[in-house]
Amino acid sequence: MNAPTGRRIRVAVVFGGRSSEHAISCVTAGSVLQALDRGTYDVVPVGITTDGRWVLEADDPERLRITGPGELPAVDGERPRFDSATLDEIDVVFPLLHGPWGEDGTIQGLFEMTDVRYVGSGVLASAVCMDKAFMKVALQAAGLPVTAGITITAHEWAEQMDTVRSRCDELGYPLFVKPARGGSSIGIAKAHGPDELAAAIDGALVHDPKVLVEVSAEGAREIECGVLESLDGELETSVPAEIRITGDHEFYDFEAKYLPEEATELDVPALLDEETTRRMQDLAAAAFRAAGCEGLARVDFFLMPDGSLVINELNTMPGFTPLSMFPQMWAATGVDYPGLVDRLLQLALRRPTGLR
């Protein structure tokens, strides 16, 4: 699909949502709103409140910023309502929702049913990559290396606590405990021993009734790689980037990711030899294909002390905040932020609706 004749392309930027990542979605939307070329695009900001109401938001990127601890942006529920029937007046949607009810295939299903083009992966890939347990199954089936771990449910924890503890003990400590369908490091805790396990699981269950317990990749380097489709359908991979945690943060938690403090140091590109870089880029593209992703993805790796690579996560809608790695990696690769946003919208416009 090309630009509509005689008018600008009408793009709905959808953000907020019902998940615990509501504020991060707002921050991401602020960055995208600021980058969109208003000479090319007629922008319609659409906010989803934490209770699921759709509103026509203000086109005000400055309001959608984190200004300090406890000062997180949110969708303004007092704004005029957005009628989802109005979607037929939209040429393309840029869904900037993170977590459940947005990044997990739910809103993608709505767009598919209404024949609305949108940025990013479809229903299945979004759902699989959101649920880290099923993501591991898909990647393992393709022969790709993933972090060892187990999945437990709230029911299992309540009814079979001793069995769950034994299974976790068999993995060996330290362990990372995380919501299976979360992001932005919300609800993640590191259990250094059995005495810390219960609190970590209870904390993760606050965010998701399904929890992933994984072996900690001790001594590993945390490195990410971006994947982006080209307009001719080929896959491109970015230069990898490394995250190094500083200060009092033991791992890449929410504060280290998003609050304006010197909690991390980023190497973009990562200091890697050519062979490791090539292996990582090849694995990132293979993971993208194995999960059936479209448009974009960020693949997170552990580079183990022995030089092996393990895939930690695959994100179908990575953050676009000023501190986010995905746009930084592509900028270092030669695609600046406005160009990245435009590429994703053009990909979505060219993609057919219906089964593909």
Rank of each mutant, 00 (worst) to 15 (best):
Asp300Met: 10
Asp88Ser: 15
Gly307Asp: 01
Gly70Asp: 07
Val341Ala: 08
Val11Gly: 05
Pro327Glu: 02
Val32Trp: 04
Arg289Asn: 09
Gln346Asn: 13
Ser184Val: 06
Phe134Ala: 09
Ile152Tyr: 12
Thr5Arg: 13
Gly17Leu: 04
Glu250His: 13
Gln328Val: 00
His22Glu: 02
Gly319Met: 10
Asn315Pro: 07
Leu347Pro: 08
Asp282Ala: 14
Phe111Thr: 06
Pro73Tyr: 00
Glu265Ser: 09
Met317Asn: 09
Asn312Gln: 10
Leu97Val: 08
Met161Thr: 15
Leu144Ile: 09
Ala180Gly: 03
Pro318Ser: 09
Val239Phe: 13
Leu303Gly: 07
Gly319Tyr: 07
Thr277Trp: 01
Ser308Met: 05
Glu89Ile: 00
Glu222Asp: 06
Ala331Arg: 15
Gly292Thr: 03
Glu89Val: 00
Ala85Ile: 11
Glu294Pro: 08
Gly295Val: 02
Pro45Gln: 02
His249Trp: 12
Trp54Thr: 03
Met161Ser: 14
Met317Tyr: 11
Glu242Trp: 03
Ala332Asn: 10
Thr353Trp: 08
Thr151Cys: 14
Glu103Gly: 07
Val137Ile: 13
Ala331Gln: 15
Leu96Ala: 04
Phe111Lys: 04
Phe302Asn: 03
Glu112Cys: 12
Val146Met: 09
Leu345Cys: 07
Val213Ile: 15
Ala270Lys: 02
Gly219Pro: 07
Asp91Ser: 10
Ala291Thr: 15
Phe176Ser: 04
Pro80Glu: 05
Leu33Gly: 09
Val11Ser: 08
Thr276Trp: 02
Arg117Leu: 10
Val335Thr: 11
Gly122Phe: 08
Met317Cys: 12
Gly122Thr: 06
Lys190Trp: 05
Pro100Val: 13
Leu345Ser: 06
Leu212Arg: 06
Glu313His: 02
Trp157His: 07
Leu266Phe: 13
Val43Thr: 09
Leu64Phe: 07
Gly120Ile: 05
Ala74Gln: 14
Gly47Asp: 05
Cys225Ala: 11
Glu255Cys: 11
Ser19Cys: 07
Arg343Gln: 10
Ala189Val: 00
Ala332Val: 09
Asp162Phe: 00
Cys26Arg: 04
Ile107Met: 15
Ala74Leu: 01
Val116Glu: 09
His22Trp: 01
Pro73Ala: 03
Pro73Leu: 00
Met135Phe: 10
Ala263Met: 03
Arg18Asp: 02
Glu57Trp: 02
Arg278Trp: 10
Leu144Asn: 07
Gly102Thr: 06
Asp115Leu: 12
Pro322Met: 00
Val213Asp: 03
Thr28His: 10
Ile311Glu: 03
Asp115Trp: 09
Arg63Gln: 15
Ala35Glu: 04
Gly102Lys: 07
Ala85Arg: 15
Leu33Trp: 10
Glu62Met: 13
Phe301His: 02
Phe176Arg: 02
Asp91Thr: 11
Ile24Ala: 05
Ala133Arg: 10
